[in-house]
Amino acid sequence: MSKRIEDLTVTDNRRLAEGFFVVKVSSSAGLPEILPGQFIQILVTESPSTFLRRPLSVHDVDYGSNTISLLIQVAGAGTERLSRLGKGETVNLIYPLGNAFTMPAGGEKVLLAGGGCGMAPLLYLGRKIRDLGVEPQFALGFRNRSRILEHEQFRDLGTVHLATEDGSEGHQGFVTDIPAFRESHWDKVYCCGPEPMMKAVARLCLERDIFCEVSLENLMACGMGICLCCIVPTNTGNLCSCTDGPVFNIRNLKWQISEQK
């Protein structure tokens, strides 16, 4: 699949919660096919301390309006600048990058687990799974009620189970404490979120022999396989999280296996 470098136009920027934004960018050339799990590299202008592009997951795609949504959490100067993008501004993207989640087969039971900006790739993944006629369920974890991100669009696609660490809403604990996660049988679990969350989900899935893919957010310089900075130790050696990933089967990851014993 070919990559492109293109100027897109910001059509919307909406604040979801403190420090979280959804930015929509539209392509006048028409979008190429984008797979769930893929990411973009965005050039951040007017932020002198931001030298490299910033990788962001594709949050959602609307082929009708040729629009990509990005869910952005302010982490530092680069994302802070992106949170201030105004309608009509131009942003330069390299995309689509990386591999994709493995789609479920018809009739499979699938759970999409995430939290914070790790929810980003799960919306588009859920939409694509829904398009296959499979109803996805979501397990979303947050620190507390005030940190819960709007998830109406997730509800439109399937059942949403919530967990907060302090129990102020949904189940108390982490996503892995949600009864539906523990008590049901899942054919496939997909996860993106902070590393401790991904490891907890991976551990549970390994114990129960459930197929599980995680989307990693390693530091990247190029995003296209030429700098070898983003490596992930796997059973087949160091792989690039930007080209061989960002989606990895947990059985192939060294961190998970060493975690086990």
């Binding site: 301390s49 931001t50 030298f51 490299l52 390693n218 530091l219 990247m220 310089a221 700098c227 070898l228 900075c229 983003c230 490596i231 992930v232 130790p233 160091n238």
Partner: peptide, 18 residues
Amino acid sequence: GNPYPRMAETASGMLNAV
């Protein structure tokens, strides 16, 4: 090569330890 992390952005540049 070397273990992760192998990259750090710096003022107008980057460090690598590939």
